[in-house]
Write a protein that binds this DNA or RNA. Structure first.
Length: 1050
RNA sequence: GGGCGUGUAGCUCAGUCGGUUAGAGCGCGUCCCUGAUAAGGACGAGGUCACUGGUUCGAUUCCAGUCACGCCCA
């Protein structure tokens, strides 16, 4: 006996039962144990931030990260799956700030970094339990107990090792970068943070003249460049002027003061609104390059390389003068352009509160923006101010304090990457990406323009930059690469590597004192170090690491192009000059059904747990995998889509299984060993062959990491299994004698169901397990996930048989369509169907399917004919594909000529002859053969026909009295079956029938008495006068005839 | 502004290495079937394959440009 199965299953309960089994029988551990001596297939799991609950993006990535390892395990590999957590960085700091009620770097320092960091540490595992629950519920097998955390001392120590390797190779340097800076919080913000609070503000604008000293033609006399800015306070720090190389500039002589002014031609009219000038010269910005001018303010006039005109592509003529004032300490374009021009020393006159320092004595102590007025006044006094106004524009503000942000140069640590571009590209070329374009275009382009990587953060909770700097000489730096090294250098015991511990540790050497640089590392540096740090390499596991590097496979979202994919590659390229991964599956974004981002606030998506418990995890997994989201495209998440996959695949599959169990139990059929069936029945051979095709398709797609294409063939297979194999085989299971054919049917169906479980196990681990557990033999593994993946066996495939069945299905569909057209229900038997095809191959193939077609179409005889012309008239149409390339411009005429071909020509073509046709352009005859035309079939008078490809089906629709009576009998059986069902009789329950009706009805039932009794399991059929029926017996409509039946169980 | 991707039926998506009838599922309408099935089948309505040009005998497909959307970057 198999465990009885209900046709209506509760997928949630099924899932929970399977989870319980996995837990109790410890199946995941067993699967690892079982494969421990096999080849290692290495998977790296990218660590998520544990600062929120998992969303669909995580579920999707988790599903991909489950399917591939499950598949590879079944293919005989050993695969460690360690979960990882990204524990550092701003997300967790933000949670801690909220919890402590503090905000900003100042406040944190006041509170104490130790307090703050311990708060962060205590909150890291806040969501861990919830993650574990959800990930597990989705069916993902991953090791949570042996997970890695970026805050572990060992992990952090390996990060130091990585850092020191970079340092040793001369890859780490300190430099400036322009960042949004909150003067109220005394901290730089990330660009992301800066983008969240823009406001419209009114700022001053000034146009200033700058005296040219070199470059301008002497005949101009006194000449000035005109510059424009909305930040007058940056003028004291001016170091250069920038012109657009391709912008057209003019020099005009002012008719009032007689001086010459240079500006962009496009801006001339807005500067000189009322004329009053004469043009004395024109040139491109590239010609202004290198001209020199007198510093506007004297404070930084000693700096070298400054006070020149530079060129830059970012210059526009939408406002200002087309000549841009450059204060490289306060603007990114300025900074980059000046650095490119060899200006290395920055004029920075502000302290950490953004007040002017001693270096700008005239404005000392004033907050920079407040100094605007005084600066403008000074410019006016000195005759440098040409125009003054105001502008309203949108400007970023600090999110927390609502004060305007100041863009300024901040000291930061960088990893040199720019000179590695070729190596990065070469290493990337060894990686196989799914989809290809992400690696070959998107990522490759990014690598080609890779910029040096800012790895320092002026924050608190993270891995520390392990650099100790001489208090007296900032160029004297010690890089520490391990705990032992630090202990030795400092003589102190190092318990923890977080900032509040290591900042207290000083190194004293040769009478000098070294203090740690205060920054922490970018958390991308940590996740990029994951291949080494998760193993505590090189301090431990050196051999294990070497075997497991690079990874066979990683999977993350498209948004990681610049994230994890990148940092992994940069670090491994520097350390080992190798790509750290061989295969990458990139998934797209999961959007809400409306195409917008999923938003908790808008509630535009269903809760993941609700979806899982309603439809089961398998349905959700399949829904996501069966979409292009596994090929980096976006998915609009639709609950209906999840329900759909349940209906299309999981329910039919379950029903096939429930069918098997129900009837096997009724028949007491049971076999322990699972053997490949050796049935001669064509349906059996066909479904086994289809199964082999499925195995082969799935295997080849999975080996290419093409998940979407791996899922697709399942839908077809299950459709064939339920709607053709089982439907066609039903009577083999129902018949009362237990003969060899019946045993073949059971054996085949069980075999197919069990093999299907194995093939589907990586995708739908729950339903596969559930079905497998009930059907397996006693010597088979206790879990489907401990089985081997079925080997593709081409010997078991019979492509001719698959083609035959395909043709039979086509013929049946055509016949059904004819019945529909002629309004003849399938229950009405017909005398004859004719299958015609001019192709001998097709005809001989479909000929073998005659009985199948006859039964499905409910016709007494199926005939085959090679001469279609009995049923259809033929005409032809040109095959543009074959002729077009040959004929070119003559194609149009040829198409007309072919449409006009007489019947004899078509018969000649069909018999395989080539014919010459004259297409009337005087260029000579065109020789055509059957491939060059497409035969069109039109119905002739007589029998209705339908056609698809080279198969034509004709149906004899005339009804004889015999056929009509049989139709009535079948209709009657159908009605009685409904009554049985309504009465909830068991399928094997015998009944008694009391029947009445009009004369035809009685005649029909009388004539087909045996058939009616057999079909309805009726042991006693009495035909009585209508008047003997119990009152209220409902009348049946039997194809227009009156009938009555009273059903009673025996 | 740049890189990459996407745009096909009311919806979710296939497909087309250039070929004259562009498919599936859902939804809708009509009907059929039901002795496993919250099912299944047939038929029908529904498409200027985002737009504009170009190449070609022929473009939804190739090329260029435009527009819209998305991701990343600036």
């Amino acid at each position: 006996m198999y465990e009885p199965v209900s046709g209506k299953t509760d997928f949630n309960a099924m899932d929970e039962g399977v989870l319980e089994f996995w837990r109790e029988a410890d199946i995941f551990r067993k699967s690892l144990e079982q494969t421990k001596n096999r080849d290692e297939f290495v998977f790296y799991d990218g660590p998520p931030f544990a600062t929120g609950l998992p969303h669909y993006g995580h579920l999707l990535a988790g599903t991909i990260k489950d399917i591939i390892p499950r598949y590879q395990t079944m293919r005989g590999h050993h695969i460690q799956r360690r979960f990882g957590w990204d524990c550092h960085g701003l997300p967790i700091e933000a949670l801690a700030q909220d919890a402590l009620g503090v905000s900003g770097a100042h406040a944190i320092s006041e509170l104490g970094v130790d307090k703050f960091n311990e708060q962060c540490r205590s909150m890291v595992s806040k969501y861990v339990a919830e993650w574990r629950r959800t990930v597990t519920r989705m069916g993902r097998w991953v090791d949570f107990d042996n997970d890695y955390k970026t805050l572990d001392k060992n992990f952090m120590e390996s990060v130091w090792w990585v850092f020191k390797e970079l340092w040793r190779k001369g890859r780490v340097y300190k430099s400036y970068r322009i960042m949004p800076y909150s003067w109220k919080l005394n901290t730089p913000l990330s660009n992301f943070e800066a983008g969240s609070n823009y406001k419209d503000v009114q700022d001053p604008t000034v146009t200033v003249r700058v005296k040219l000293t070199e470059g301008a033609p002497a005949e101009w006399g006194e000449a000035y460049a005109l510059i424009w800015t909305t930040t007058p306070w940056t003028l004291p720090e001016n170091q250069a002027i920038c012109a657009g190389p391709d912008i057209c500039y003019v020099a005009v002589r002012d008719s009032e003061d007689g001086c010459v002014y240079v500006m962009a031609e496009a801006r001339l009219e807005s500067v000189y609104k009322n004329g009053g000038y004469t043009v004395v010269g024109k040139c491109k910005g590239s010609e202004l390059l290198g001209w020199r001018y007198e510093p506007i303010f004297p404070y930084f006039s000693g700096l070298s390389n400054c006070f020149r005109i530079l060129n830059g592509d970012f210059v526009t003529v939408t406002d200002g003068t087309g000549l841009v004032h450059m204060a490289p300490a306060y603007g990114e374009d300025d900074f980059n352009a000046c650095r490119a021009a060899g200006i290395t020393e920055l004029a920075d006159g502000l302290d950490w509160d953004c007040r002017f320092t001693d270096s700008v004595p005239d404005f000392k102590g004033q907050f920079c923006k407040d100094a605007d007025k005084a600066i403008i006044r000074r410019l006016k006094e000195e005759g440098k101010l040409v125009h003054q106004g105001t502008i309203v524009h949108s400007y970023p503000f600090c999110d927390r304090t609502d004060t305007p942000l100041i863009y300024r140069a901040i000291d930061a640590w960088y990893v040199k990457v720019e000179d590695l571009r070729d190596k990065l590209s070469a290493n990337n070329a060894t990686v196989s990406w799914m989809p290809e374009y992400v690696g070959e275009k998107r990522f490759a382009n990014w690598l080609r323009e890779a910029k040096d990587w800012n790895i320092s953060r002026n924050r608190f909770w993270g891995s520390c930059i392990p650099l100790w700097i001489n208090e007296k000489d900032p160029s004297d730096i010690i890089c520490v690469g391990s705990v032992a090294e630090l202990e030795e250098l400092s003589g102190e015991k190092v318990e923890d590597l977080h900032k509040h511990y290591v900042d207290k540790i000083l190194i004293r050497r040769d009478g000098k004192t070294y203090r740690r640089t205060p920054e922490v590392l970018d958390c991308w540096f940590e996740s990029g170090s994951m291949p080494y740090a998760q193993q505590h390499y090189p301090f431990e596991n050196a051999e294990k690491f070497r075997k497991g590097f690079p990874a066979n496979f990683i999977a993350e979202g498209l948004d990681q192009t610049r994230g994890w994919f990148y940092t992994l590659l940069v670090l491994s390229t520097i350390l080992f000059d190798k790509a750290p991964y061989r295969n990458v599956v990139v998934n797209g974004l999961v959007l809400a059904e409306d195409g917008k981002k999923m938003s908790k606030r808008l509630k535009n998506y269903p809760d993941p747990m609700h979806v899982i418990t309603t439809y089961g995890a398998d349905a959700l997994r399949l829904y996501m995998i069966n979409s292009a989201v596994v090929r980096a495209e976006n998915l609009r998440f639709s609950e209906t889509g999840v329900r759909q996959i349940l209906r299309d695949l999981l329910i039919p599959w379950w029903n096939a299984y429930s069918f098997f169990v129900t009837y096997a139990n009724v028949d007491k059929w049971h076999e322990d060993a699972l053997v490949a069936p050796d049935s001669s029945n064509e349906l059996d051979r066909w479904i086994v062959s289809s199964l082999e095709t499925l195995i082969s398709d799935v295997t080849s797609s999975m080996d290419r990491y093409d998940l979407q294409r791996s899922v697709r063939p399942f839908v077809d297979f299950v459709d064939n299994l339920t709607n053709w194999y089982i439907r066609r085989s039903r009577r083999r299971f129902w018949k009362s004698q237990n003969d060899g054919d019946k045993a073949d049917a059971y054996r085949t169906l069980r075999y197919v169901l069990v093999q299907l479980c194995k093939v589907a196990a990586p995708f739908t681990p729950f339903i596969s397990e559930s079905i497998y557990r009930n059907l397996r033999g006693s010597d088979m593994p206790e879990s489907v996930h401990l089985c081997e993946f079925p080997q593709p066996n081409s010997a078991a495939r019979d492509s001719l048989l698959e083609r035959q069945m395909q043709l039979a299905q086509t013929a049946v569909n055509l016949g059904h369509s004819l019945r529909k057209q002629k309004d003849l229900k399938v229950r009405q038997p017909l005398n004859r169907a004719v299958i015609a095809s001019s192709s001998e191959d097709t005809l001989s193939a479909v000929r073998l399917m005659g009985s199948v077609i006859a039964e499905e179409l409910n016709v007494k005889n199926v005939e085959f004919a090679s001469d279609e012309s009995r049923f259809v008239s033929l005409s032809a149409k040109a095959n543009f594909k074959s002729l077009g390339s040959r004929l070119g411009k003559r194609m149009k005429l040829a198409s007309n000529a072919i449409a006009a071909l007489p019947a004899e020509s078509l018969v000649a073509l069909q018999s395989g002859k080539s014919i010459d046709i004259d297409i009337g352009d005087g260029e000579g005859a065109v020789q055509i053969s059957l491939e060059d035309v497409q035969i069109i079939r039109m119905e002739k008078e007589g029998m209705p026909v339908a056609n698809e490809g080279d198969v034509t089906v004709a149906l004899e629709t005339a009804l004889t009295q015999d056929l009509i009576l049989e139709g009535i009998a079948r209709e009657f059986v159908s009605k009685v079956q409904v009554m049985r069902k309504d009465a909830e009789f068991d399928v094997a329950r015998r009944i008694k029938l009391c029947v009445a009706g009009d004369p035809e009805c009685v005649e029909a039932i009388e004539k087909h008495r045996d058939y009616v009794c057999a079909e309805t399991l009726c042991v006693c059929l009495n035909i009585v006068p209508e008047s003997d029926l119990p009152s209220g017996t409902p009348e049946m409509d039997l194809n227009g005839h009156r009938g009555f039946a009273v059903v009673a169980g025996v």
